[in-house]
Amino acid sequence: MGKTYTRMGDGSVIELSESELKRDLEEGTRDAAERGRIPPLCEDELSYLFDIYSIPYRFVSVDRGNEVVLTYDAATLKIRRVGVLTHRIQSLQIYEKLLGADTLEFDHVDYSFKPVKPIIAYEQTELEQALLVTTIPMFYGAMPNLGSYTQPDGPCLNPMELLPMGKITEARAAQEEMVEHAVKDMVNVASAMYESGADGINFDTTGAAGDTDFLATLRAVEILRKKYPQMCIEVGMAGEFILGMHGELTYDGVRVAGLYPHKQVELVEKAGATIYGPAINTNTDESCPWNIARAATFTKACVENSHIPVHADMGMGVGGIPVVDQPPVDAVSRASKAMVEIARLDGL
């Protein structure tokens, strides 16, 4: 076998020999297993990944029968982001009618629950218009973004200013206050959008501001589940483990800081969500095979531990996909095939 064309986690092209490819796959799965205290991939799975990476084709796909649901978050933003001037509703139509999306997310450019609150009537009207010209199931989505509740953007003292001063008690109190504000906003916005016709609510990049972010989302999900028993609720993550910015917050008796996906999903399920989206960080200093072996190991353990569908986050910098604005098709298609067929995902 000649050298295999692949990439580093930053997107740069590299070539790996057979032994280098095998070594990267083994080291990637070992890293995940050690960090998450989960089983590594077995020989057969590593061999399957080896085949996916050594195929010379520019892009690959899942085998017939292994197709999964394709959901696009921030669908109203991404076409404009590459410079194509489309209205939000036109963007959704492009995803539905041209790009093969199975579900979509309607969202605002500020993409956080807090800034949506004062423009909720505008969002409701736009969503209703979008629903009139599409048939696809439509989420309304935004980020919990707990950072937006701290000074100077919000009412709470800023823990990232207090912590370096050693004011840990004050920082923790501020974080607990942030959770209360965020839960109210998330429940208000989600309720309004659901009652305007959204098929579901997506909490995207949950945990971006650490354990407060995750806890607030779980509490909001719990309230929404009681309020709307039929609501579809997706919780998508920001990174592979919950950063402990507070460190002592618990949900249902479990400390949320430090949880990896296979443990996160237990709480997400308990809170009442219907879909969970793990996000495994891409390491730019390692190869794509190393990253995908690692991402598949974490995600497989999560799927095995979950009773709800798992739709992994696959995009720039997560799910074994390189950190580049326009992720290359060779890397994206291989990562997608590997995650679906090794981790047994329900959706991407």
Binding site: P164, D211, L243, G244, M245, H246, L259
Partner: peptide, 9 residues
Amino acid sequence: GELFLPELI
């Protein structure tokens, strides 16, 4: 993820 920011401080 085995130690948290306040402990780090």
